[in-house]
Nucleic acid binder design. Structure first.
Length: 572
RNA sequence: UGUCCGGUGGUGUAAUGGUAACACAGAGGUUUUUGGUGCCUUUAUUCAGGGUUCGAGUCCUUGCCGGACAACCA
């Protein structure tokens, strides 16, 4: 371990934590939580939150809970619970103790609500939904108080118990906190604590007919779990006064419960260009078949990224690099790509795969001869070892690596030109054949036996080295190339001439998936497992898709290599 | 016309009253049996006005711009 220089710059949350530590707050304990609702799959935005919460606790010797915020039985399901747990673990984090659920606290929450009623801080409201909404007013104008606001404690208690027992129909009554209908903060205008829902919950079954709302459940769950720093995204900023109000009310009769006192801290959610990052929109893409499921490699979901070939380390690194602040941000997709290239460059074995093959015949190489060449697996990894790659008279090379009439700066094959075949010999192009459509069918070349890789005595120098696969040894594979899901950097940010928002789906990139079904890879690839990652030399990083089998290999392109030649061509 | 939160290169993030820095992206070079990697160089920044101060990206103030808030969602 090298003594890396101390990183003294802290993000604003770390500053808060260090300040708390310096002041001896919470007895020096840092306790965070990651609180997803089990109603969908985790995405890159959640990854940032996970890294933030777990990372903060790790840094300051604290703990992190995984808590499912399962207060709405209508949308939630256990299948999501399992997927989320798997994703968190895959990212490399282990939570403290058992998995927690807001539903674990339904009894406690209920008795706390009863206490609030007794103290005149909550009341049962019979006002219909629409009416409640209307009476809440608008941000610039105070609301009106409910006609049921001053019910007696006894009546409230009785009604609330009946709500719990399932005596009333859905929507007929709610429990509301009694705060201030004139508050400029809408969330303080007698917010709803419980609603009636005759729905089966994925964990509590039919035990409950009332379910707590987010505002009532979240802060209390934090308090129950002794969370010290409750980190969430910016849209909850306006909820904080309510969060604090509930904690304060409970402190009136249960000091123990709100000690340590949880503190909500908000940060700006992650946005990445050329994609969307909301559960609702991602769900739409899945349901309307724009992609093939939640784990489609084009999706910014953890499962999609994983199937695409992203590593946990690359995602953690990405989360680190995007930083944490309170201002709206749109991260360049190129940063994500940088993070995965950085990781895979060090770790992914190199292999040769020809994506768009054309046949090359070495005319002076003996007809039935085969040579086993030894090629290093990874020049970036001294421990990477070597492998054997068979060489023969007929090879596949990349169609792009030959030009009939190449410009001077083209360092590959063309009539009379020389290149090195990676790990093998230097060849010179003699001739080529075309079919009636003008497509090149075969390239003929001669090799120089004195130029064998590692024992070259020729003194020859060439500008280019190209990859290849021996025709008789080639293994056929399918390769799926992916491009950005949207052709526009901010698909959700557009409006038409009338100022109406334009559907983000209008910007879907119809070339986001290109399937290559005639790819040839070297024979060492015959035995691979799902999610194995490789660098196809000069072509990019690839990951074995779970669809892959021994008979039908399938690779997903994670990301291309940086390609300064492609760039130079484009700029011409 | 309300309340709250923001505004630093193309994109992010730092600088905590004292030299505006780091990363990505871009440009150029170098090394290279991957046009990859590595290494070197380079372009480019404090929303605007006023104030406080020896000194302001930072504090105060006004304005402008952006975002959040009006589910019995989270």
């Amino acid at each position: 371990m090298s003594q890396v220089e101390e990183n003294t710059s802290l993000n604003f949350i770390e500053q808060i934590v260090e300040e708390d530590l310096a002041n001896g707050k919470n007895d020096g304990v840092v306790y965070t939580r990651f609180p997803p609702e089990p109603n969908g799959f985790l995405h890159l935005g959640h990854a940032k939150s996970i890294c933030l919460n777990f990372g903060l606790a790790q840094k300051y010797g604290g703990k992190t809970n995984l808590r499912f915020d399962d207060t709405n039985p209508v949308t939630e399901d256990t299948s999501y619970v399992d997927a989320i747990k798997e994703d968190v673990r895959w990212l490399g984090f282990e939570w403290e103790g058992e998995t927690r659920y807001a539903s674990d606290y339904f009894d406690k929450l209920y008795s706390l609500a009863v206490e609030l009623i007794k103290r005149g801080k909550a009341f049962v409201d019979d006002t219909p939904v629409d009416e409640i909404r209307r009476m809440r007013g608008i941000p610039t104008q105070a609301g009106e108080e409910s006609a049921f606001r001053d019910r007696s404690v006894e009546e409230n208690l009785q009604l609330f118990e009946q709500m719990k027992a399932g005596d009333f129909s859905e929507g007929s009554r709610v429990l509301r906190a009694k705060i201030d209908m004139a508050s400029p903060n809408m969330h303080l205008r007698d917010p709803i604590m419980y609603r009636i829902l005759h729905r089966s919950h994925h964990r509590t079954g039919d035990a409950w007919h009332i379910y707590p709302t987010y505002d009532w459940a979240h802060g209390q769950s934090d308090a129950i779990e002794n969370i010290t720093h409750s980190i969430c995204t910016l849209e909850f900023e306006v909820h904080r006064p309510l969060y604090d109000w509930f904690v304060e009310q409970i402190g009136e009769f249960d000091q123990e419960m709100v000690n340590p006192q949880p503190r909500q801290i908000e940060f700006a959610r992650l946005n990445v260009n050329y994609t969307v990052m909301s559960k609702r929109k991602l769900l739409e893409l899945v349901n309307e078949d724009y992609v093939n499921g939640w784990d489609d490699p084009r999706m910014p979901t953890i499962q999609g990224l994983r199937r695409r070939g992203y590593t946990p380390a690359s995602l953690r690194n990405f989360a680190e690099r995007v930083g944490v602040a309170k201002r709206d941000n749109v991260i360049d997709l190129s940063l994500l790509e940088f993070c995965i290239r950085e990781d895979l460059n060090k770790t992914a074995p190199r292999v040769m795969g020809v994506l768009n093959p054309v046949k090359l015949v070495i005319t002076n190489y003996p007809e039935r001869q085969t040579e086993d060449l030894t090629i290093e697996n990874n020049p970036e990894d001294a421990e990477g070892g070597t492998r054997t790659v068979p060489f023969s008279r007929e090879l596949y090379i990349e169609r792009d690596d030959f030009m009939e009439d190449p410009p001077k700066k083209f360092f590959r094959l063309g009539p009379g030109r020389e290149v090195r075949l990676k790990g093998a010999y230097i060849i010179q192009c003699e001739s080529f054949e075309k079919d009636t459509r003008g497509e090149i069918t075969t390239i003929y070349a001669t090799y120089d036996p004195a130029t064998k890789s590692g024992e070259d005595t020729s003194g020859k120098k060439v500008k280019g080295t190209i990859h290849w696969v021996s025709v008789p040894h080639a293994v056929k594979a399918e390769v799926r190339l992916y491009n950005r899901l949207f052709s526009d950097p901010t698909p959700t940010d557009h409006t038409d001439e009338n100022g109406e928002p334009i559907d983000y789906k209008k910007f879907i990139n119809d070339k986001s998936l290109v399937v290559l079904d005639k790819v040839f890879v070297e024979p060492s690839m015959r035995k691979v497992s799902a999610f194995d990652r490789f660098q196809f030399m000069r072509k990019g990083y690839f990951c074995v898709d779970p669809d892959s089998s021994e008979e039908n290999l399938v690779f997903n392109q994670t990301v291309t290599l940086r390609d300064s030649w492609a760039k130079a061509k484009k700029n011409n």
